[in-house]
Design a protein around this nucleic acid. Structure first.
Length: 572
RNA sequence: GGGCCUGUAGCUCAAUUGGUCAGAGCAGAGCGCUCAUAACGCUUUGGUUGGGGGUUCGAGUCCCUCCGGGCCUACCA
């Protein structure tokens, strides 16, 4: 038994996430966490909301709430949606927690003491009307290159030219529209990532088997141009972790907070501390996951994230931990994902394009989405959600192959033997053949799951379901019962035990359906099969069960057309 | 501009270090079965692996080039 620390990239507090966000981090992380637990490993699965930064402040301002209230409310909303999708976090924390503030300040102080933080004076655009400094993208104006009137300060969306806010003609605040902008000098803390470049580079080189997507992005940032650049880790904002605090090795940072990309990854650790507090456990209980000098030496730490998050997890966060000079646990494997597109374009939070988590759950339970999303996870390239594909995947895989198998076995048994596992003969050669095929398939499934090859794992799981239908077709208990009731009974006994086996094996993908199957079978033995023959004898003759309700309902053509039309436009 | 990824049957995707790897699922066609959510099983039609050139005994798999798609490029997070 090993110990697995699993973190999912933190969803930003600003609004409800769409299915692309879900499949890019939280969902695959959950799959892995559930699988590892099922295999008997000790797992700590951590996620949290990322709550600081300008967008949170602006979103709160729009609803008229104090930002802290807004974040608390949205955290609860996201937590509820996570539950709806069956996300089995050990703790779903908040980057605004006191634990994160303390740890962020602690690490910053350590970095400062190590000479890895310096103060840099910068000029930034300030908007007196808004009472705040404006990030580049919150300044709009006319593009000097193409004349586009709504160009952003970082880049013109029309001609894609990289811009500096001061390049814009007639610049104005994207927040208030104010045009009386001025350039002010402000001082910020910079993390001297460049000083850690060699260590980071060597550390990346030491990793093996990481997705190309992960290492290529890290290498690009390490070696492109002048190499890894130092990064500002503070901002002129109110909402965040104060950059000036007791024990800080610098002065003059009053009124400034740490930048979200500095404190958000630290929340992985802090959320584990939150977990300990929530369970009334001592600090040692969370530190054994994160401090290699306090027990984390045998921990395997795996992170899940979309490709946009890779630089911060391969460079920024490791730089923070390495630079602290303290023995913090570094990530062992980074599973990164491409993007899921929506019907020919991108999912877009800002434009409300695509299906959002709350909307998805209004249409269908979480398992339907989990299956399609995971079996189409954008591992090797961007993938695309279409309603046709979703309908086909759900109907064929879940309703026909798995759901109908359960239905035909349980209903046949009820009709011919009653709702108890029938006695019957001992397994015959055909049943042993099935057992062997399942054993081989299980090995392939486990290999894919161990390797976090998600689409392949889904295909292997489905192949196991198919074996049940093949066996049933071949054994044909509806036929054997006429001449050999004992054999028919054995065949159905196999079928009922197969359902339990499928519930156990499918649980990481389909937690809710698995639970319903086990409830119908009146079974609570979730032990992962070591030996298939033994696993298929778990439900003994005479064991009572009930025929479950339809496991997965099919998506009709009318529903598909209706949903496609409803989500064609933008979210209101 | 620079960098990275990608282009394999109608669709979604597989093919260890180049050597029976040209495959699977869906869709299509035929047959079978009737327990079941008109479900299941078997068989089967589809590709000169984006175009062209090169290296090699041998290349989706390496190199060059052209065409197409996507992403990143550090102050959105």
């Amino acid at each position: 038994m090993a110990r697995f620390l699993i973190t999912s990239a933190l969803p930003y507090i600003n609004g409800i996430k769409h299915l692309g966000n879900l499949v890019g981090s939280q969902l695959p992380a959950d799959l892995h966490a559930r699988y590892m637990r099922a295999r008997g490993h000790e797992v700590m699965f951590i996620c949290a909301t990322d709550e600081h930064g300008t967008p949170a402040e602006l979103a709160a301002a729009r609803t008229g709430e104090p930002v802290a209230d807004y974040c608390a409310r949205m955290h609860a909303v996201q937590e509820g949606l996570a539950r709806g999708f069956g996300l089995s976090f050990d703790h779903f924390g908040r980057s605004s927690s006191p634990q994160n503030a303390a740890l962020t300040q602690h690490l910053a102080a350590r970095l400062g003491a190590a000479g890895l933080i310096e103060q840099v004076a910068e000029e930034q655009v300030y908007s007196p009307a808004d009472g705040r400094f404006l990030p580049d993208r919150y300044i709009t104006g006319t593009c000097p290159a193409c004349g586009y009137e709504n160009a952003r300060g970082d880049q013109c969306e029309n001609c894609t030219k990289q811009l500096d806010p001061t390049d814009l003609i007639n610049p104005r605040s994207a927040i208030s529209g104010a045009t009386n902008l001025e350039v002010r000098e402000t001082r910020h803390l910079f993390l001297r990532q460049s000083a850690l470049r060699e260590r980071l580079d060597a550390w990346i080189d030491r990793q093996s088997g990481w997705p190309v997507l992960t290492t290529s992005i890290a290498k690009k940032w390490l070696h492109d141009g002048d190499g890894l650049q130092d990064r500002g880790i503070t901002r002129d904002l109110d909402w965040g972790i104060p950059a000036q605090f007791d024990g800080a090795p610098w002065n003059g940072m009053e009124g400034k907070v740490f930048y979200v990309w500095f404190d958000a990854p630290i929340e992985y650790i802090a959320a584990t501390a939150e977990w300990a507090e929530a369970h009334g456990l001592p600090d040692a209980d969370w530190r054994r996951w994160w401090r290699t000098d306090e027990g984390a030496d045998d921990v395997r730490y795996i992170q899940f994230m979309g490709k946009d998050n890779v630089p911060f997890h391969t460079l920024g966060f490791p730089a923070t931990l390495m630079g602290s000079g303290e023995p913090w646990k570094l990530v062992d494997y980074i599973k990164s994902f491409n993007y899921l597109n929506y019907d020919g374009g991108q999912f877009s939070t800002s434009q409300g394009r695509g299906v959002f988590m709350d909307q998805a759950l209004e249409l269908l339970p979480g398992d339907y989405w989990r299956w399609w999303l995971l079996s189409h996870a954008p591992e090797s390239g961007d993938s695309e959600f279409t309603w046709e594909s979703f309908q086909a995947g759900v109907n064929k895989d879940l309703a026909d192959v798995l759901g109908n198998f359960v239905s035909r076995v349980t209903k046949f048994c009820r009709t011919r033997f009653g709702e108890t596992v029938p006695e019957g003969a001992a397994p015959d050669p055909r049943a042993q053949e099935l057992t062997a095929a399942l054993q081989a398939g299980l090995t392939r499934y486990e290999a894919a799951m161990d390797a976090i090859a998600i689409r392949r794992a889904a295909a292997e799981l489905r192949a196991l379901w198919v074996l049940g239908n093949e066996y049933l077709q071949d054994a044909a208990p509806w036929s054997t019962i006429k001449s050999d009731p004992d054999t028919a009974a054995m065949q159905i006994r196999m079928g009922l035990n197969l359902i339990r086996l499928y519930a156990v094996l499918s649980q990481p993908f389909l937690p809710d359906a698995a639970k319903r199957l086990m409830d119908a079978l009146d079974c609570n033995d979730w032990s992962w099969p070591e030996d298939i023959a033994a696993a298929l004898a778990t439900l003994p003759p005479g064991h009572a069960f009930t025929v479950p309700d339809t496991l997965f309902a099919k998506i009709t053509d009318d529903q598909r057309a209706d949903w496609a039309a409803r989500f064609a436009g933008t979210r209101s």
